[in-house]
Design a protein around this nucleic acid. Structure first.
Length: 257
DNA sequence: ATGACGCGTCATACGCGA
């Protein structure tokens, strides 16, 4: 089962790219972030036409997540518990072929001296609690999306430039490590410990040309799901094409036996 | 310290992202 996560930075702006890419690469489960559109306006028919079912948690202008599946899935939640006042569309979960897929767009959190940062920390606490509870059911769990977390020094080109940033702050990295310590495994790092494997490059300052990127899009696997990991990789080719997202897709191949 | 680039919007300036 080939699965992928991709922050598209606006689904409407990316439609031509997305449809061609899906037809060419043929993933079975697709997690999208920053669709930046209301559910009612989401171009579902274009995806249905190429064989996908669409599960949406969108909102106008900002944020918004979706999961696309080849066969019908069961939508199980659009709410990350723990904050009844949270109106931001950053979470969607489906069951598909006896696996639980949790697609997230974790808050950016900058600037650090604002309520945006405390919202990020609270959101991560809620995610950790949710993922902790989920492990008790002995299901195979896949948590994937844009985490807005640079886990380690070699997940960016210039760590010294990120020390005061919400993506690399000690508190944020500690909470990400807490999630790993629950037993979830980083699908990319299981197979590749090398430097300079990034998933996002700023549009500005020739960041792509100079490979000044960060690794912030992740696929985390519960231990029983990690047992089935056959391959994982980051496909950077889309970033060099016309009118790209600033992020690229992160892939995993899971055995179905 | 600042601004650059791209997307979306109660658009032609601004909020937001990373």
């Amino acid at each position: 089962m080939k699965i992928v996560t991709f922050n598209v930075n606006g689904v409407r702006a990316r439609m031509d790219t997305l449809i061609e890419w899906l037809k060419r690469t043929d993933p079975e489960v697709v997690a999208l972030q920053e669709i930046k559109i209301q559910d009612i306006d989401f171009p579902s028919s274009a995806f249905e036409k190429i064989g996908y079912h669409c599960y949406l948690n969108g909102q106008k202008s900002f944020n918004g997540v979706a999961i696309l599946t080849k066969e019908e899935a069961k939508l199980s939640s659009k709410v990350l518990p723990g904050d009844n006042d949270d109106k931001q569309a950053r979470f969607i979960e489906v069951y598909y072929k006896k696996k639980r897929f949790i697609c997230i767009y974790l808050p950016n959190g900058n600037p650090k001296d604002t309520e945006k940062f405390s919202y990020k920390l609270g959101w991560m606490d809620r995610l950790n609690e949710y993922c902790h509870q989920a492990l008790k059911h002995e299901e195979e769990i896949v948590v994937l999306g844009d985490f807005n977390v640079i886990p380690q020094y070699n997940d960016c080109k210039y760590p010294e430039r990120w020390t005061e940033d919400a993506l690399f702050s000690h508190e944020v990295r500690a909470k990400f490590n807490h999630l790993l310590n629950l037993g979830y495994l980083d699908a990319i790092r299981i197979l590749d410990e090398s430097d300079s494997i990034f998933t996002q490059w700023d549009y500005r300052d020739r960041a792509w040309e100079e490979n000044n990127g960060v690794r912030i899009d992740h696929i985390l696997l519960s231990p029983n799901a990690a047992d089935k990991l056959e391959d994982s990789w980051i496909d950077t080719t889309l970033r060099a094409q016309t009118k790209p997202s600033d992020h690229v897709p992160v892939w995993a191949l899971l055995s179905t036996t």
